[in-house]
Amino acid sequence: MSRVCALLLPFLSAAAHAQSTTPATSELGSGFGQMLFGLAVVIAILFATLWAIKRLTAPRGGSVPLKVLGATAVGPRERIVLVELAGKVLVLGVTQSSVQTLHVLDAGELPAATPQPPTGLDFSAWLKQSVERRKHGS
């Protein structure tokens, strides 16, 4: 029994020492309060930064409704772009160094886009077709 007490004595003295040095509940509460205050400051800084980013990246100038209707490449760095602006459709030639107006027409003059039939089969149709071929081929 004395051996067990001798082995446990260092642990018991460490536990007694730890009890005498534990912070009071008021100190624990103030530490928790400081942590919450720090968290609130970090969240406030985050929201202020997000507000500033949103404010600085807002588009400048008037609110001109500009809509890109389509574009197609005609060369490695050249494109033809259709842009709708204030009831007009602009056909623009865009190169690496310049943008030129090729043609201007009213938005009503632009022919309505007709839906193009798919040139190839979609995956579900291809799978169905291959399964049917397999069934009839066996």
Rank of each mutant, 00 (worst) to 15 (best):
H103K: 15
F47W: 09
S2V: 07
A16D: 06
A14I: 05
L121P: 11
S98D: 12
S30A: 07
S130L: 06
D122V: 08
E132D: 12
A107Q: 03
A18S: 11
T21Y: 01
V99S: 08
Q34A: 00
I45W: 10
S98C: 13
R133V: 08
P111E: 02
F47D: 05
V41G: 08
R134N: 13
L82I: 02
S26F: 11
A44R: 01
P59E: 04
L121S: 14
I80A: 07
G70C: 02
L46K: 02
V94I: 14
D122W: 13
I45F: 08
E84M: 03
F37Q: 01
P10Q: 08
M35L: 14
V74M: 04
G93P: 10
V41R: 09
T22D: 03
S98P: 02
L66P: 03
L36Y: 08
V4C: 04
A14R: 11
V41P: 00
K135Q: 13
A71D: 05
P117T: 10
G93C: 08
T25V: 14
K67P: 01
Q34N: 00
M35D: 02
A40P: 02
Q100F: 01
Q100N: 10
Q129P: 04
F123Q: 15
L102H: 02
S130R: 14
F11G: 12
V94W: 01
V91K: 10
T57D: 06
A6R: 04
P59S: 13
R77L: 15
V94H: 04
W51T: 04
V4K: 04
V94G: 14
L8E: 09
L105A: 06
R133M: 08
G93K: 05
T101E: 05
L121E: 12
R134H: 14
V81I: 08
A86P: 03
T57K: 07
G75I: 01
V99C: 09
P117C: 05
L9P: 01
R133W: 13
V41E: 11
M1E: 15
V94K: 14
L69S: 01
T119E: 13
K128Q: 09
S98H: 01
A40N: 05
S124Y: 09
L69N: 00
R134K: 13
I43C: 15
S98G: 05
E132Y: 00
F47V: 12
T119M: 10
I53W: 10
S20K: 14
C5M: 11
T95Y: 00
G62L: 15
S26L: 06
K67C: 03
T21F: 03
P76T: 10
T49P: 01
V91R: 09
G31S: 11
T25N: 12
T114H: 09
T119K: 07
P59Y: 00
G29P: 00
S138V: 07
K67T: 12
G87E: 03
A86G: 05
F32D: 00
G93I: 03
Q19M: 10
T49A: 15
A24H: 09
L8M: 07
S20N: 10
G33R: 02
A48L: 03
T21G: 05
E132H: 10
A15Q: 12
I80F: 01
A71V: 07
Q96F: 08
S2F: 06
H136T: 14
I45M: 12
L82W: 00
G87Y: 03
I53F: 07
Q34D: 00
G31F: 06
R3E: 14
L7I: 07
G38N: 11
